[in-house]
Design a protein around this nucleic acid. Structure first.
Lengths: 97, 97
DNA sequence: CAAATAGTTCGATGATAGTGGAAATATGTT
DNA sequence: AACATATTTCCACTATCATCGAACTATTTG
């Protein structure tokens, strides 16, 4: 992951609602959480929530999967881990030397 | 560190110039880097750079220390580590269970 | 097909953020 | 004091973001 890509992901995580959404998704694991459930739990108007989710989707932190009328939001751990990897490698002090 | 504080820090890191600045500061360690050196290396106009730096200062990721005419920018590893800690604890999967 | 449910897109608006030149401030030098 | 250097603040402008009701699309059910 390069700096620009990492910055984009961090920017999207850098909003309390979106960070809260991502955190909530991680708690549920791979099966994902329906948009409607997020809306109730986080008490965010539907249209606003939809924008936040698509921001997370746009940087690959979340994927969506439809089952009937229900859209599940699934956290993409691989992308998140790449972000963490970039931060660890490029922005942390190497204490081992 | 709470979610809102973490989101604020991530937001500031979520800009390529600022992420680049922070990365550059980490490379230099505790002694810090003069604003002017950053300006030359990263090729950012002075006023713009100054705004970016103060954004990082405002969330505690950077401190400044003056020595004569030169202002050194010093990365605040403790704050960064708290951010990493929040992300690890709240947004990562616990593989140990 | 009509109605119900789940979510998105549209559209408008107000709020922040990003940018950079010019002027101002702080400090050091002669 | 006058000047040079280092950096910030001011100011104006443009661009992007955040918010949310209303209208729309997708899907299931009766």
């Amino acid at each position: 992951m390069d700096l620009d890509t990492c910055a984009k992901a961090l920017k999207e995580l850098g909003h309390p609602s979106r960070l809260g959404i991502y955190k909530r998704l991680v708690r549920s694991g791979h099966q994902g959480v329906p948009v409607g459930a997020l809306q109730k739990e986080l008490d965010i108007p539907g249209s606003t929530l939809s924008h936040h989710i698509s921001a997370l989707v746009s940087v690959g932190l979340v994927k969506q999967k439809r089952d009937g009328r229900t859209l599940y939001c699934i956290p993409q751990f691989a992308t998140f881990n790449e972000v963490m990897g970039f931060l660890s490698e490029e922005c942390c002090v190497d204490e081992s030397t």
